[in-house]
């Protein structure tokens, strides 16, 4: 296990941070990619101080594909790279309905940005059998709900993207894991919940790590959301449209 190298895309996010710590604890080397490089430098210092881990900061912006080439180049130099995709935006649905032009930005980041960087990294990954890719999806992508459907749509698209990507890379010996995350204690959910009875970021990061090590295809985290979403998906549409879930 020691000696893995993880590229974390969106390393300033709560989950990105927690996952970086989880990986560093196992002796992994970290490449932290995100927009706020000053903050990532602090995070890299944290990994060095706590775990004596090697950490490097890379500038990355999902919505500016021009920078993705440099990322692919850097990853090409790593012998056995692993990737975590942990960036997303989730504005309130009400805010999107007031300003519809923002919906494009949500899909642009969560789906188009992810597609852009994943496709850019495809040729690199094909050369690296044994690599792991973990993509953070969402239970919101399993079925659109009035409360969160633009974000849900971007994640549903991402799920399809990951599914195809998994098949594409399967022959190359690269595993692609989709983690469908339920609500957990991150910056996204902070303003929407009262912090009680919500899964910790560390627990979700831990399940991401274990799923990657076991090369799982799709997991739900926290696990109970598998059954909750199975029930939600089973509700017939005529009834579902009347519910306020």
């Amino acid at each position: 296990m020691a000696g893995q190298t993880w590229l974390v895309l969106g390393a300033s996010s709560a989950l990105g941070r927690a996952f970086a710590r989880r990986a560093a604890r196992e002796g992994a080397q970290l490449l932290l990619a995100g927009r706020d490089t000053a903050d990532l430098a602090d995070m890299a210092a944290d990994l060095r101080t706590r775990f004596n881990a090697e950490a490097e900061v890379l500038a990355f912006d999902a919505v500016s594909p021009a920078g993705h080439d440099a990322l692919a180049l850097r990853l090409g130099a790593v012998r056995e790279p692993n990737i975590l995709l942990a960036f997303a935006v989730m504005p309130l649905q009400a805010a999107l309905e007031r300003r519809p032009e923002q919906a494009a930005a949500v899909i642009g980041t969560n789906l188009a940005g992810a597609a852009s960087v994943m496709l850019r990294l495809l040729p690199v990954l094909e050369e690296k059998p044994g690599a792991r890719v973990v993509v953070i999806g969402s239970v919101a992508g399993d079925r659109g709900r009035p409360r969160n459907y633009v974000y849900g749509a971007s994640k549903a698209g991402l799920h399809a993207l990951v599914s195809g990507y998994r098949g594409r890379l399967h022959r190359a010996g690269v595993s692609v894991t989709l983690v469908k995350a339920g609500p957990f204690d991150s910056g996204m959910t902070f303003a929407r919940t009262d912090l009680r009875g919500i899964a910790t970021t560390e627990a979700v990061a831990d399940s991401c790590w274990r799923a990657a090590q076991r090369r799982r295809n799709v997991i739900y985290s926290p696990t109970r959301w598998r059954w909750i979403m199975a029930a939600v998906r089973a509700i017939p549409e005529p009834l579902f449209k009347r519910l306020d879930l």
């Binding site: 969106g10 990105g16 995100g34 927009r35 999902a62 504005p91 923002q102 980041t109 910056g187 996204m188």
Partner: peptide, 9 residues
Amino acid sequence: ALRDEDAGL
């Protein structure tokens, strides 16, 4: 705020 990848805070 929107372009911030982990917006919300």
